[in-house]
Each structure stands twice: as structure tokens, then as C-alpha cells.
């Protein structure tokens, strides 16, 4: 599978992250999104007329929406990431995948304005971002009351991966995560998963490694 990728794109990172968590091999094709604007080049527009990245190619198949890529990778390599198949759970996963697009538009929009100087109404993007975070926090608080840590249960699914990056990077758009205790624990649970990989802006959980022993002279 070939991923048209940008190191600073949370949407591209979703795909890299799930691939890492499921042991899926990806061939990365870096796209000069910033400053080059290569995603709007004729070659990439031919692949994806929307002019967005990521783009995932697998043989004849071309996918241009990150949620679809997550579903594809999970279905191929690790179906447990699609949940148990219970109808309510499947629907909830779909709901969070849709919700993740609101995170992209709001938190991701604020991040593009604040960090990469793209045009946009920062205050409006931040306000809709806070609204989405509050919704997520409320849902995760209920999950914790039920004894679960992930969005749809005790195990992570593509829903968690779809929502994780833009939430973790909300501070890039000057939206503080301080007021959200349940979001914080959920982010940590995702970061602690076996095989987790980072992207710039998300630091290593150094606590998972023991303190290095003092070298004796």
C-alpha cells in the first residue's frame, strides 16, 4: 500500500498510526504540502480531485478519505479494530468516524491558521473546536463511569484512531486541553498502545521506559 503522506498532517498520521498498530506495511510517498503546495499539483489532483491528502493506493484501489483508509487497513489486517460486529457498536464507530471530520474542520482548521498561517476565522474555529472537545469529554466521562476507557468500549477501534490526532494536537491551534480530564486519560491510553508511533507535537511517553541506570565510572 502506498500512502501519499505529509509528516505534519494529522489525517496522514491516522493512517500511519493504524498501520503501525496493526503491523501493516506502508510505502510512504512524501508530498510537499507546505511550503510547496504539491497536493494541488496536476499529478495529485488527477489522483484526488479534492486536492487533499492523504491518498492511499492499493493496486487499483484509490482512497482519498482517511476514515475509509482506516476501515480498509483494519478490514485487511486486523478486523478487531472494527469492533465486535454488534450493530450498536458498529453504528457508534461510524458515528465517531463522522464526528472526526468535525474535529478536522474545527481543531485542524485552527491549527492550520495558527501554525501554518492559512487563512481562516480563528476565533470561530476555536469556538467550534471547544464545542467538539466538550462533546467528546462528556462521552468519555460516561465511558469511564461504565468502566471503559476507549470511545466504544474497553478496546480501541478505528474510531479512537480517527479522533485521536486532532484532539492530541488541539494546543497547536491554541486550544488548551487542560479542562478535559477524561480526554487526557483517553489520549494517554491511546499513546500507551503496543506499537504506537508519534507525530511531531505528540511527545514520547517516556514513563513507559524505566529510568536509565546510572553508568558506573
Amino acid at each position: 500500500m502506498k500512502l501519499y503522506d505529509y509528516i505534519l498532517s494529522p489525517s496522514c498520521y491516522k493512517v500511519r498510526l493504524l498501520a503501525a498498530l496493526t503491523g501493516t506495511q506502508l510505502t510512504l510517498r512524501p508530498v510537499d504540502f507546505h511550503p510547496g503546495g504539491e497536493h494541488l499539483s496536476p499529478a495529485l489532483l488527477a489522483l484526488n480531485p479534492a486536492g487533499s491528502i492523504p491518498i492511499l493506493e492499493d493496486g487499483e484501489l484509490v482512497l482519498t478519505e482517511s476514515s475509509a483508509m482506516l476501515v480498509y487497513i483494519a478490514a485487511k489486517a486486523a478486523p478487531e479494530w472494527l469492533g465486535s460486529g454488534d450493530p450498536a457498536e458498529s453504528a457508534q464507530i461510524q458515528q465517531w468516524l463522522s464526528f472526526s471530520h468535525r474535529l478536522t474542520a474545527s481543531l485542524g482548521g485552527a491549527r492550520l491558521v495558527e501554525m501554518l498561517l492559512r487563512p481562516g476565522d480563528l476565533a470561530a474555529l476555536q469556538a467550534s473546536g471547544v464545542k467538539a472537545l466538550r462533546e467528546l469529554e462528556a462521552a468519555l466521562a460516561v465511558q469511564r463511569m461504565k468502566g471503559d476507557i476507549f470511545l466504544t468500549g474497553s478496546k480501541p477501534t478505528v474510531a479512537d484512531i480517527a479522533c485521536f490526532p486532532y484532539v492530541a494536537l488541539a494546543p497547536d491551534g491554541s486550544i488548551a486541553l487542560d479542562p478535559y480530564p477524561s480526554i487526557r486519560l483517553w489520549l494517554r491510553a491511546v499513546r500507551a498502545l503496543d506499537g504506537f508511533i508519534e507525530m511531531p507535537g505528540i511527545h514520547r511517553l517516556h514513563e513507559l521506559k524505566p529510568e536509565p541506570a546510572k553508568e558506573t565510572a
Binding site: H203, L205, H206, E207, P210, E211
Partner: peptide, 8 residues
């Protein structure tokens, strides 16, 4: 923003 290891 830091991290907890053991008792530190």
C-alpha cells in the same frame, strides 16, 4: 507536560 517515573 512532563512525565512520572517511579517516585519522581
Amino acid at each position: 507536560h512532563g512525565f512520572v517515573r517511579g517516585e519522581a
